[in-house]
């Protein structure tokens, strides 16, 4: 491990508010330790901006261990940066080298309006879930957990889809800002389990309707979403979504 300090030039998207114009501003950060996480490097920059009485860079982050899904920035043209299956908060500066220029931008999508700088409003995802991304069971009165056996393979596959952290990298990566992978992951997760079967048709119809209303683009089957997903949700999710949607549309009853 090298402990040499790195010098990094950052070009960061700065935008005061949702309708204000934005621009890339350049900052030089010296003394970057390669063991720093990417967000810690931004912390250091914000500390420097504070000393200069400049507005800090606003960005979303919380758990900093890759699971809450809050961090959201496009680093050098890729959501969450260059490392596969890694959120920005788990990205470390050793993935870069001294003298590098790094471009940082927010997720860009009509459905994710910019709040400030790198922060975007992802409540569209919540509204999609609210429209059907659940099993409508009341608390209490559930049958014994082992009353309904579920094959290990199905349970494991359901987990693969359920691992989605709702960060929105799929939308940011998609050339059309489509949310198909996010919606597909939930539809496929619940579709793999018998518990999700009852509402299978209404769920997919309602979720896709909300997805369309929120202004996400359509899928053109490029696969960028899955390639950028920090949890590596498989493209198979979109296949399930397409199949379920067609089947639900063509079958009359619910």
């Amino acid at each position: 491990m090298s402990d040499e300090k790195m010098k990094i030039t950052l070009h960061v998207w700065r935008q005061k508010g949702p309708s204000a114009p934005g621009e890339l501003k350049t900052y030089k950060v010296d003394n970057v330790n390669p063991h720093m996480s990417f967000l810690e490097m931004l912390d250091v920059l914000n500390e420097e901006l504070l000393q200069k009485n400049e507005d800090p860079i606003a960005f979303d982050h919380d758990c900093r261990e890759g699971i809450c899904g809050m961090c959201s920035m496009v680093v050098n043209g890729r959501p969450h940066g260059p490392r596969k299956a890694t959120t920005t908060c788990q990205l470390h500066m050793r993935s870069f080298k001294s003298g590098d220029e790094i471009y940082i931008e927010p997720w860009r999508a009509k459905a994710f309006p910019i709040i400030k700088d790198l922060m975007v409003d992802r409540s569209a995802f919540d509204r999609i879930i609210a429209s059907g991304g659940y099993v409508a069971v009341h608390t209490g009165g559930a049958p014994d957990a082992n009353a309904l056996p579920i094959g290990k393979k199905d349970a494991d596959e359901a987990f693969d889809y359920a691992a989605c952290i709702g960060c929105g990298a799929c939308v940011a990566a998609c050339p059309n800002a489509s949310a198909m992978l996010f919606v597909g992951a939930k539809v496929a997760h619940l579709g793999k389990l018998p518990q999700g079967e009852v509402e299978r048709r209404s769920r997919v119809l309602n979720m896709v309707h909300t997805m369309d209303t929120e202004g996400f683009g359509a899928c053109t089957n490029h696969g960028e979403c899955s390639a950028s997903c920090p949890k590596e949700i498989p493209l198979e999710a979109i296949m399930t979504l397409n199949r379920d949607y067609a089947r639900a549309s063509f079958s009359g009853d619910e």
């Binding site: 043209g77 890729r78 931008e105």
Partner: peptide, 9 residues
């Protein structure tokens, strides 16, 4: 994206 988008696949 002001700095362009890097596609992977």
């Amino acid at each position: 994206y002001a700095a362009g988008q890097r596609t992977q696949v």
